[in-house]
Simulated assay, not measured.
Amino acid sequence: MSDANKKAIRTAIQTGIGVAAALPMIVAASGVPAALPWVAGALAVAGGVARVMALPVVQALLPSWLRTDSSASRR
Rank of each mutant, 00 (worst) to 15 (best):
R51D: 09
M53T: 05
L36N: 14
G47R: 04
A12Q: 08
A34N: 02
L61T: 09
A21E: 15
Q14H: 12
A34C: 03
G48Q: 07
I9P: 02
Q59G: 03
M53N: 10
R74D: 07
G18P: 00
I13S: 05
L66R: 15
A21L: 14
V39R: 02
P37C: 04
R74F: 08
I17C: 02
I13F: 09
R10A: 15
K6I: 12
V57N: 08
P33Q: 03
V32Q: 09
A20R: 00
P33T: 02
A34E: 02
S64Q: 11
M25L: 14
S70G: 06
V39I: 12
A20C: 05
V57S: 14
W38D: 15
L55C: 07
A50M: 11
R67Y: 06
T11Q: 13
A12K: 06
P56F: 09
A60D: 01
A29W: 09
A34R: 05
D69K: 03
G41W: 08
P24M: 06
Q59V: 03
N5Q: 15
G18F: 03
A29Y: 11
A46F: 01
T68L: 12
L61V: 09
G48E: 04
G41L: 08
V58R: 05
W38A: 15
M1C: 15
M25G: 14
A22H: 04
Q59K: 08
L62V: 02
V49L: 14
P24C: 05
K6L: 11
A44H: 05
L66C: 13
G48A: 07
P33S: 07
L23I: 02
A72I: 02
A29R: 13
G31Y: 09
T68H: 10
I13N: 05
S71C: 08
I26A: 03
W65F: 15
P37I: 02
